[in-house]
Design a binder for these strands. Structure first.
Length: 568
RNA sequence: UGGGGGAUCGUCUAGGGGCAAGACAACAGAUUUUGGAUCUGUGAACCCAGGUUCGAUUCCUGGUCCCCCAGCCA
């Protein structure tokens, strides 16, 4: 069921509801997600997937097909087909037995082309591509009719057969719709229906020498599959009259309705295939699954959950106006999801050695820690505690600023799940002045959960027992671009010049809690006070590697930044 | 200066002749053994000008600005 309250569904669902109520299309809704297998899916595609599959799921009897729009063999291949299938499945959608390919319909498309020729609605043009462009006119001037426009039906049939039989060179001819060269809509100025491409197709091999264009194949594919609502992005809006023309002239039984919506844009990233490919080719990122990329494989590797992405897609809605969604909303959605599900664990990214001078040497206590305070059914675990610990370097300041609640000389903090400690000494490197170790005294009466001490301290910090910790590499990601709208380059500016040079920081020598022992690739954790992390595919049993999915909200950093600004 | 779309808080999205709603973000407070989470609160918008109307963000007219289209790409 739609989770949208009545009266607040998006305009597409409103149309579907209305059509269903009116018993249009026999009272059913049937959508499709129609990617071209020429690249990998990104979060913008997720919006379309969630829309199409979501509508099918929400309305009784609804169905959604996966359909590969594989009409251009020069750009497409099976690797993309497989990765797209994997991504759609991962996102949580099921096309059941309805995975189709436009190439499945090539024979029927060809029959329809012949039908159009016979009706005098299509002709073989022998102008070159350049000439066709010249004849097309401009935005303000009408086009001119091709000299080949008046060929006889017989000649058109004959030439089309030759094209199909592979007897013509690429570019020698093209099949065009005979519509109106003076149309103010350029798409209606005798658009190309078929072109010659003498290259093997990833599914049909060398059986075809001609391939239909999107404008011809798409409406017919929809008709053949019984699609009721054909959802696409705004740039196809002025193709709609052509979509209608093809359906009408081919006299198909099913006449679906094309509805356009605005594609997704996200701050601090790019979503165009061209720009994403550029980032990879030029080595700005490591590949299509680089965790900084908004590709589904990148987000998956980073640790994003399908639930979070689906929730995000619900949040952003569907409308016709151009939009740029704040990436903070995406981040909010993962946090919301992972807060409820991720096991808590302590991990120190930048270790500072702490010695508890009054803690017995060689003693190890096993302390009880809660796995997820949001979900008691996740139980507890035990964490080893001993005389030498690591804490976060950030959690100690020799000269603490105002409102800093963590450790500093003479100050007290609680160690999470353990004791209150007081800093009694600071050991520095004599040459660099760097703090290398902190000496503290622990108060045995303040053991967590003992209830013996009513003492309150302002801060609680995480820690790890030096002797028991595991070492790990942890990758921190920032935005890929340093400006919120890298797509709107100022004049003379290239999006590449807006790349954030510090979008990846790899931190080695991190010390993580024993509980991470044996964690498998893809497993997610909350590192207390820090964020959500996911075991990367580079991780091995010998060398743990984790990605930071997203940091926890950090109100201290805001306070601190505010303080530094005030000091100006 | 052709055609097609669009314009509501900083962002995204609702609403539709009669109090402009929600989410994210921001800010403030409560709470807290995660400066997390949670809770409460605050600030924040109808592109402009006319017209119709008791009343217009909504309807009408005229502007302005933004996006898309001249692939044998999708």
């Amino acid at each position: 069921m739609a989770e949208h309250p009545p009266g607040s569904q998006d305009f597409i669902r409103a149309i579907v509801s209305r059509d269903l109520d009116a018993q249009k299309h026999g009272g059913v809704v049937h959508t499709r997600f129609p990617p071209e297998p020429n690249g990998y899916l990104h979060i913008g595609h997720a919006k379309s997937i969630c829309l199409n599959f979501g509508i099918a799921r929400e309305f009784a009897g609804g169905l959604c097909n996966l359909r590969f729009d594989d009409t251009n063999p020069t750009k497409e291949n099976m690797e993309y087909v497989e990765s797209i299938q994997e991504d759609v499945r991962w996102l949580g959608f099921d096309w059941e037995e309805r995975c189709f390919f436009a190439s499945d319909y090539f024979e029927q498309f060809s029959d329809y082309a012949v039908l159009l020729i016979k009706k005098g609605k299509a002709y073989v043009d022998s102008l070159s591509a350049d000439d066709i462009r010249c004849y097309r006119g401009t935005l303000t001037e009408p086009g001119r009719e091709s000299p080949y426009r008046t060929r006889s039906v017989e000649e058109n049939l004959h030439l089309f057969a030759k094209m199909r039989a592979g007897e013509c060179e690429e570019g020698a001819h093209a099949l065009r719709a005979r519509i109106d060269m003076a149309s103010p809509n350029i798409n209606m100025r005798d658009p190309t229906l078929y072109r010659i491409r003498r290259v093997p197709h990833h599914r049909t091999g060398t059986t075809w020498n001609i391939y239909p264009t999107y404008d011809f194949a798409h409406p017919l594919s929809d008709a053949l599959e019984g699609i009721t609502h054909s959802l696409c992005t705004l740039e196809f809006e002025d193709h709609r009259p052509l979509y209608e023309w093809v359906l009408n002239e081919c006299d198909v039984a099913c006449h679906s309705q094309q509805i356009e919506f605005a594609r997704l844009n996200l701050t601090y990233t790019v979503l165009s295939k061209r720009k994403l490919a550029g980032l990879i080719e030029e080595g700005h990122v490591s590949g299509w699954n680089d965790p900084r990329l908004p590709t589904l494989m990148g987000l998956r590797r980073r640790g994003y959950t399908p639930e979070a992405i689906r929730r995000f897609c619900e949040h952003i809605g569907v409308a016709k106006r151009e939009n740029v969604v704040d990436v903070a909303l995406l981040e909010h959605c993962v946090r919301e999801d992972l807060n409820a599900r991720a096991q808590r664990v302590m991990a120190v990214l930048r270790p500072l050695r702490v010695v508890l001078t009054n803690y017995p040497e060689g003693c190890v206590e096993e302390l009880t820690a809660v796995n997820n305070p949001e979900d008691p059914t996740m139980g507890t675990r035990t964490v080893p505690f001993s005389r030498v610990l690591y804490i976060e370097r950030d959690d100690f300041r020799e000269d603490p600023p105002k409102k800093y609640f963590r450790l500093a000389p003479g100050r007290e903090v609680r160690l999470r799940y353990a004791y209150i400690i007081e800093c009694v000494d600071v050991i520095k490197d004599e040459r660099t002045g760097e703090v290398v170790e902190v000496h503290c005294r622990y108060d045995p009466d303040t053991k967590s959960g003992s209830g013996r001490s009513a003492r309150k301290v302002k801060g609680t910090i995480h820690w790890v027992s030096a002797a028991h910790a595991l070492e790990a590499e942890i990758r921190l990601f920032g935005h890929l671009f340093s400006v919120p709208d890298p797509d709107h380059e100022k004049a003379g500016q290239d999006y590449r010049s807006l790349i954030n040079p510090n979008s990846l920081e790899s931190v080695r020598g991190c010390q993580v809690e024993r509980a991470l022992q044996g964690a498998g690739v893809g497993q997610r954790f909350q590192f207390e006070r820090q964020g959500y992390f996911c075991v990367d595919c580079d991780s091995t049993s010998q060398a743990l590697v984790l990605n930071r999915i997203v940091a926890l909200r950090d109100s201290w950093s805001k306070i601190e930044h505010g303080q530094t600004q005030d000091r100006r």
